[in-house]
């Protein structure tokens, strides 16, 4: 169990050293990611210029969702990458090189897309979170702190699993790299807003089947002590870690299935 983590750290370390050779690029990209992240947030503020509540949600509460989603998104992006280089890897045959190494392919793909510039977005999320937590009156207790500690890893695992499934589409159509954006940026966009504003069918699909509601929405209901506008039982708020485990199992199977397809169809 420990050895793969150490290897992952070495692989990441190698990429950090590579990227540090281009300090100016790194600084520019990180600053750019930091700035461009604020556009989404400006959009939230513009909406609340026009209404006081979105459904039952106040601007601070939506900002709380926003901040958590951003942090989870950025950390997932940092840890496993968002598969934007992946179509290229398959097209030029570099995925084959991973297949002749004695390691799992998903592990190697994840370990080869570490980009420090993604810290820019994480930093933006943290800033917003700091501001929001300061301005919200949250009744902190042991349960809420525990939830706060658990929700981010669970969110990362859920996001990551969804992205892996999206990335798998590339095994069938290498031109279809754009599909991954629907899963990554689309997932983040959805998780930034309360899912109770969606129509029923879209909510069932995007929030429960693609379990994006468990990224921020349910944990946030508990932390913010909000009754669920949809009237779901309270224990659902605590299901994120379970959903995360299911998601990762599903993603693993889909990945194995996709690689098997690749290995018999020849990419």
């Amino acid at each position: 169990m420990v050895e793969p983590v150490l290897l992952w750290r070495r692989l990441v370390g190698a990429q950090v050293r590579s990227q540090l050779q281009y300090r100016v690029s790194f600084a520019l990209d990180a600053t750019g990611a930091f700035l461009i992240s604020f556009i989404d947030f400006l959009a939230v503020l513009v909406i609340f210029h026009n209404v006081h509540r979105l459904g039952t949600w106040s601007v601070r509460e939506v900002a709380f969702l926003y901040a958590f989603s951003s942090i989870s998104f950025a950390t997932t992006d940092l840890l496993i990458g968002h598969f934007d280089q992946f179509p290229q890897k398959i097209r030029d045959g570099n995925f084959d090189i991973l297949l002749v190494r004695p390691r799992g392919t998903l592990f190697q793909v994840i370990g080869s897309d570490f980009q420090m510039r993604r810290l820019g977005k994480a930093l933006q999320g943290l800033l917003v979170l700091g501001f929001v937590i300061g301005s919200l009156d949250i009744p902190w207790d042991a349960g809420r702190v525990a939830m706060l500690v658990v929700m981010v890893p669970a969110a990362i695992v859920i996001f990551g699993s969804v992205w892996v499934v999206g990335g798998c589409l590339v095994f069938w159509t290498t031109d279809g790299g754009e599909f991954t954006n629907a899963f990554t940026y689309g997932g983040n966009f959805l998780a930034q807003y309360p899912v109770d504003i969606l129509s029923t069918w879209l909510r069932r699909f995007l929030a429960y089947i693609v379990p994006l509601a468990f990224v921020c929405y349910f944990p946030a209901l508990y932390i913010l002590d909000k009754p669920d506008p949809l009237g779901l039982p309270r224990f659902v708020d605590f299901l994120s870690p379970v959903v995360a485990l299911v998601a990762v199992a599903v993603a693993g199977s889909v990945w194995r299935f996709a690689v098997r397809h690749y290995r018999s169809a020849g990419g």
Binding site: E3, L6, L7, R10, L11, A14, R17, S18, Q19, Q21, D92, G93, N94, D96, I97, R101, P102, R103
Partner: peptide
């Protein structure tokens, strides 16, 4: 195809492969 790490000194690639292959 390049299986070495493009931006790193050659010896670093060998180090990494050493760990990949245990």
């Amino acid at each position: 195809r390049v299986q070495l790490w493009w931006d790193l000194p050659l010896v670093d690639s060998f180090e990494l492969l050493r760990h990949i292959y245990k």
